[in-house]
Amino acid sequence: MTTILIVDDEYLIAEILSFALEDEGFLTVTAGNGQKALSILDRERPGLIITDYMMPGMNGIEFALAVRANPSFANIPIVLMSGAQAHLGVSRPDLFARVYEKPFEIEAMVNSVLQLLKEP
C-alpha cells in the first residue's frame, strides 16, 4: 500500500486530504511543517508528497529543494498547493509534478494522485 505524505500547517486541509486519499486505499501521514516532514521521510518512505507553500520555518519550495537534495527521494512526485503563490510552483517543474491553487477540488487532487502514482 502506497503512503502519501501531506505537509500543511492548516490542520483541516491536511485532514480532509488524508480522509479522501485513505478512501482510495492509500496510507497517509501528515506533518504541520517542512522540518517535521523531512524527519518523517526516512521512516515512512512515501510514494508521493503533497505540500502547502506557506508554512512556518520553510516554505514549499524550500521543502521540495530539501527533498530533492536527498538522492533517495529525488524521484518522489511532489504536488504543491498554494493560495497565492501557485505561480512560483508552476515556474519550478523540476520540483513539482502538479500545482494546485487553493481552494482546490478534492476530487481533482485525488485524481492527480492516482494518475501520478500510475506513471512510470
Rank of each mutant, 00 (worst) to 15 (best):
V110C: 04
P71C: 03
R45V: 02
R98F: 07
V99R: 00
A108L: 05
T51A: 05
R68W: 10
A86M: 02
I61T: 14
F96I: 08
L95V: 12
L80R: 09
D52W: 03
V67N: 10
Y53P: 08
E107D: 15
S82P: 02
P93N: 11
V110M: 01
I106K: 01
V90D: 02
V67H: 06
G83N: 09
S91R: 14
S72R: 13
Q85C: 10
R68L: 05
D94P: 07
M55G: 03
I76M: 02
A86L: 01
A64C: 11
H87R: 08
M54I: 14
A108N: 14
K102R: 12
D52F: 01
V99Q: 03
L88Y: 05
S72Y: 09
R92F: 03
V110T: 07
G47S: 14
L65A: 12
I61N: 01
D52H: 03
M58S: 08
R45T: 11
I61V: 15
P71V: 01
A86G: 14
F104M: 10
T51G: 08
L48T: 04
M81H: 14
N59L: 08
M81Y: 04
I61A: 06
P103H: 10
V67T: 09
I50K: 00
R68S: 09
D94A: 09
A86V: 12
R92T: 11
M55E: 01
A74E: 13
V67Q: 09
Y100P: 06
P93T: 15
A74D: 12
A86N: 05
I50D: 01
T51S: 13
V99I: 03
V79I: 15
A97E: 14
V99S: 05
K102D: 12
A74G: 04
I49W: 02
H87A: 13
D94E: 15
M58W: 07
N75Q: 15
N59M: 07
M55V: 11
F96Y: 07
R92M: 08
I76P: 07
V110G: 03
G60M: 04
R98A: 14
Q85P: 00
L95Q: 11
L48G: 07
G89Q: 06
A108M: 03
L95K: 11
A64F: 04
M54F: 07
A69K: 13
R68I: 03
N75T: 15
P71I: 01
I50N: 03
F96H: 07
